[in-house]
């Protein structure tokens, strides 16, 4: 039974999930456009950051330190992986994007394996325990913000959606209104031309790693808020989805990525509402991706590389 109230609730739900997809896809596309890498495992780094923040919160019980840990670890992993990508690009003379994806997959394997053996014995971690969240703040966000009959929207969903919107707006502001953003777009359109104009490629590349690191860390904090838990294989699943969204929208297409990411979030939420089962929403998501990719291998909005 799908009446209008449930539908609206699911759309809000989907938008909050979608805003996380938007953040992930935009980070992925930025790295693709500016640093010229297919960072397939970008979401895995974010799941890693969630784990780091969980560890810190487990030890200190401090929410602020947890968020800080998420951002710091995302930047750190990004900065550590940067020289590896730079290295393979130099070795091959020109940029071989396939090789960057394989390297990224290797990094993803490494991180996923590590989290699934070394942390919490490989069991999913929860942010809703006494140790992690001694003040009960996170648990408090589970309370309904609005409730109308069967329908309820929790504070965590509203918070995620609002923060997500602010983050996406901030990101696009950086891209379109700042000096660094202008340099990003110039490199994205024509790296050689940008170099001739006098834009420092290395410095701008490093800036893009830092920006996506900050973005990734904040996304990790949001995901912890929205999902309340994480498991080692979450990263791979998100990795596939992000790559899927990016391909469906057209690789490197920032605006297209935003639209498709929000749509996917809504579709997943609605499917979840109809079938009330977790595994089917993923199945429908991948079925949709499959159909669209088969029909339009170059994306709905076109590749912008």
């Amino acid at each position: 039974m799908l009446n209008i109230e449930i539908l609206i609730a699911q759309i809000v739900n989907g938008l909050s999930l979608g805003s996380i997809y938007v953040l992930l896809v935009t980070g992925f596309n930025l790295l693709l456009l500016v640093a010229m890498i297919i960072h397939f495992s970008f979401p895995v780094i974010i799941v890693f950051s969630i784990y780091m923040s969980w560890i810190v919160m487990n030890l200190t019980g401090s929410l602020a330190l947890g968020i800080l840990a998420a951002v710091a670890s995302a930047i750190l992993v990004n900065m550590v992986s940067a020289p590896i990508f730079q290295h393979i690009m130099r070795k091959r003379g020109s940029v071989d994007i396939n090789a960057t994806m394989v390297i990224s997959m290797g990094m993803g394997m490494l991180i996923t394996e590590w989290t699934s053996h070394a942390i919490n014995n490989g069991f999913p971690i929860s942010f809703e325990t006494e140790a992690v969240d001694p003040h009960g703040w996170l648990r408090a966000t589970r309370a309904p913000f609005i409730r109308a009959g069967l329908v309820s929207i929790s504070y965590s969903q509203v918070l995620t959606l609002l923060t997500g919107i602010i983050l996406v707006a901030a990101l696009f502001w950086v891209l379109y209104k700042t000096k660094a953003g202008r340099a990003f777009r110039a490199i994205a359109e024509n790296p050689d031309g940008a170099r001739l104009v006098g834009i420092p490629l290395l410095k701008t590349g490093v800036q893009s790693y830092i920006l996506t690191g900050i973005l990734g860390g904040l996304t990790a904090a949001l995901m912890a808020l929205l999902l309340g838990q994480a498991s080692p294989d979450l990263g791979d699943q998100l990795g596939h989805k992000v790559l899927g969204i990016s391909i469906i929208a057209g690789l490197g297409n920032l605006g297209g990525g935003l639209v498709i990411a929000l749509l996917l979030g809504i579709v997943e939420a609605i499917v979840q509402g109809v079938f009330s089962g977790g595994s089917w929403s993923n199945t429908v998501a991948f079925l949709l991706m499959l159909v669209i990719v088969l029909a339009k291998p170059r994306g709905v909005f076109g590749i912008k590389l």
């Binding site: 000096k179 202008r182 777009r185 110039a186 359109e189 024509n190 031309g193 104009v197 006098g198």
Partner: peptide
């Protein structure tokens, strides 16, 4: 500074953005 062959302007960016890129430093 160099004005590259084939103009080398950034087609997907605004005229203003192109000019500001010249003054990037």
């Amino acid at each position: 500074t160099l004005v590259p062959e084939g103009r080398g302007v950034f087609a997907t960016m605004s005229v203003l953005d192109n000019l500001l890129l010249g003054a990037h430093h």
